[in-house]
């Protein structure tokens, strides 16, 4: 072992060890990302389904001339799910962002009880999402506590059928998402706020800037990167929304709360038209990639800058 690192072939050794160390991760990525994607492309061009009796590699026997892709363009349920997912993102992410930011501004300086309040406020995001879904399922029963609270507050009996009314179901699902993920925004934005140099805030104050002016001229520009990170993370995660929602409504009533993931789940497990689902999935992957490339470049850049 003497002086191995000082030998001229040390660089080679380092490269070889680097390769070996990264190999397992590379293989896992290949195994779950690259290979399945290729498989998905193949299947998406066929009418193959697990019920068709043939193994998947024999799917070429079900070649359908891109019919799956033409079908998805006219699949009203798919576009409806996409629209609802967009709606959920459009409502939930800004709401979580603004609530999180408001809470974070309350937590910037020291005050009594800060630590414990902080820990409690993070609890919702720690709850297993499926369990959170069940919590809200109970809360939103028409004879449940939410209506009970509303009745007490308004003084008249409120019996909203939260989970079986098409509009209220959507609202309930959104409330659950906002409840669970506002803490994430709060956490990230608070870290961002804490990173705004205190001296600059003081300097701005001494130069006569009001609290609002300080926020606009110092805090927001300084937190731009972090805000982008927080928003991208939530947009990405929110697009996948499934657990809470599926437990609360199962996508119902009817298709009133059916988002992309719920729709995928249903066509995968109930309709079993896997060739078509593969086409749907690829379509989503491609669209998402295009959207994500920009966001990711931003994110990677931000990570470089922050690191």
């Amino acid at each position: 072992m003497s002086g191995a690192s000082l030998q001229p072939d040390s660089a080679k050794q380092a490269a070889s060890l680097g390769f070996k160390l990264t190999l397992p991760a590379q293989l896992l990525v290949l195994f779950i990302a690259v290979f399945p994607t290729l498989m998905q492309i193949y299947i998406s061009l066929t009418d193959w389904s697990p019920l068709s009796g043939a193994n998947w590699w024999m799917a070429y026997g079900f070649w359908n001339n891109f019919a799956n892709y033409f079908d998805l363009l006219q699949d009203g349920r798919f576009w409806g799910a996409l629209r609802r997912t967009g709606l959920v993102m459009l409502v939930c992410v800004p709401a979580e962002f603004l609530l999180g930011l408001a809470l974070a501004t309350l937590f910037v300086d020291e005050f009594r009880g800060k630590k414990i309040f902080y820990s409690i406020l993070l609890m919702p995001m720690m709850v297993v999402p499926a369990v959170a879904g069940y919590m809200f399922y109970m809360l939103f029963q028409s004879t449940g506590p939410i209506n009970h609270i509303l009745s007490t507050l308004t003084g008249s009996t409120v019996s909203i059928a939260w989970l079986s009314d098409t509009t209220y179901a959507m609202i309930a699902v959104m409330i659950a998402d906002i409840w669970q993920w506002t803490p994430l925004m709060f956490l990230i934005l608070l870290a961002g706020l804490a990173g705004v140099p205190e001296d600059q805030i003081k300097a701005a104050t001494l130069l006569g800037a009001s609290a609002r002016q300080r926020f606009i001229t110092i805090v927001i520009p300084r937190m731009k990167t972090i805000m982008i990170i927080a928003l991208s993370i939530r947009l990405i995660e929110n697009f996948k929304i499934f657990d809470t929602l599926y437990i609360m409504t199962g996508g119902g009533p009817g298709t009133a709360t059916e988002t992309i993931s719920v729709y995928f789940y249903k066509v995968t497990t109930q309709d079993l038209i896997w060739g078509y689902v593969a086409a749907l999935a690829l379509f989503i992957l491609v669209v998402l990639s295009v959207v994500a490339v920009y966001a990711m470049k931003r994110l990677a850049l931000a990570i470089e800058v922050a690191a």
Partner: peptide, 22 residues
């Protein structure tokens, strides 16, 4: 790896589950 893995995180698991199930 850094980008490949972020990508892996971005895509909904639902969208790659068909091949995984197979």
């Amino acid at each position: 790896l850094p980008l490949a893995l972020i990508q892996l995180r971005i895509f909904p698991p639902m969208a790659v589950m068909i091949p995984v199930m197979i």
